[in-house]
Computed example of a mutant assay.
Amino acid sequence: MKPSPLTIGLGVSMTVGYGTLHYSFSVLAPAIARDFGWETSFVFGVFSAGLLAGAVSAPIFGRSIDRFGARPIMVLGTLAATLALGLYAVMQNAWQFAAVTFLAEFVAFAVQYDAGFAALAQRHGQEARSHVTLVTLIAGFASTVFWPLDQWLLTLMDWRDVYLVLAAVNLVFALPVHLAVPSYRPPRKEQATATGKESPKDSGTRMPMVLMAISLAAGGFLISAVSASLLVVLGAAGYSPAVATLAGSLIGPSQVLARLIEYSQRRLFTPVVTALVASGALFVSFLLLSSALVRPIIAVPMFFAVIYGAGQGLTSIVRGVLPLHYFGTAGYGQTMGILSGARMVLSAAAPVSIVFVSERAGAGVAILFLLAAAGISAGAMALLSRLPPLTREVPGS
């Protein structure tokens, strides 16, 4: 596949969407807390609660994408994200901080993977798989770009000015890409789905939708928990901060390598196989990590990070290609909205629940809790793989 300018552009805009709304928060939140005299836990608690606003907005934006196309939703989402980042720079109290955070998370769906995948599905249909993978390859560097960028900017200016820079980044780099997304006129059948006259759950897709939602939501729980609390859990399990940090640093390269392999070898296996490998890798990684409860040798968290990173990297691809494989392009935005909403609810609950379990019952119970979630994700995906798709996949897509 020759990469299209749109695909590369969406990779850049998704990098901006995740970098400015998600990864930048972890760098700037401590500075915000110090400036206002708030507990850091309060700041991150507001962010976790804000994810629930995203769970509410996801089905709404999904149906709107089916009805109006991805371009107007992504353009409006970019403008709203720019507004939210600008409002961070002028907020004065906790209520304003909470309101702006809820706004930022409410519009995140429109400028991150789900909307981007919908734009690619509307443009390329069943052949969107390779484009989805390429977008995740590019956007996988969002933390690599924005964490050091934000830290460098903080040496030059205060956090309010950094937020103004991030707002400008959305206008300069993301908005032109989203304006260039081709217009889309849905077929009559898809228009009916978008207006609620027909929905995926009413057209024979209930069981695949339920199993897919369970698997992806459980996977989202794992990814959110590890992103927020891996160092805490490994530390409680007896590993030094240096070992835990080294293990965490292996996740990113493994994620990128897995996506590269999927991109280059995609013709050799179906989206279902990719999904099974992704959920299976997550399960195996936590099964391996649980062995540290018997003997905490240094190699365990290292191998865990490599296998987990591969599973996490493939999971982002699965989010886009598996609904397309099973349900096709009709109602794709609504399908993504439903799945994203379920995933975001569990993702919001993951950090606080895992830290709570670790503090009250110990790291061992927390790891077993994560292993159970991984087992649920892999089990639901295994059941889903036994069901036939409701639309025929284009060979080599």
Rank of each mutant, 00 (worst) to 15 (best):
V162N: 06
L154N: 04
W159D: 04
D150N: 15
S215E: 06
P176L: 06
H178P: 06
A192N: 13
A228L: 10
Q151I: 05
M157W: 13
V181N: 03
M157C: 11
K197H: 15
Q151F: 08
A213C: 11
A225N: 05
V177Y: 00
A167P: 00
S224N: 08
A180M: 09
A192S: 14
R185V: 15
Y163P: 00
T195V: 15
E190V: 12
Y184G: 07
G196M: 12
T193Y: 14
R206F: 09
V172T: 01
P208L: 07
S183I: 08
L211V: 06
G219K: 01
Y184Q: 10
L153P: 03
P187L: 09
A180T: 05
F221P: 01
M209A: 07
V226M: 11
V181H: 02
L166H: 03
A228E: 06
I223S: 01
D150E: 09
D158S: 14
L222I: 12
L216Q: 08
P182D: 11
L164Y: 05
A192K: 13
N170D: 05
M157G: 09
M209N: 01
E190P: 08
T155G: 13
A180I: 04
V165Q: 04
V169W: 00
R206T: 11
A192C: 10
T195S: 15
P176Y: 02
A194C: 13
A167K: 00
G204R: 05
P208C: 05
T193V: 15
W152L: 13
G204S: 07
E198D: 14
V181G: 04
T205E: 10
L171M: 08
V181E: 05
A228G: 11
A192Y: 07
M157T: 14
M212I: 06
A194G: 15
A217K: 03
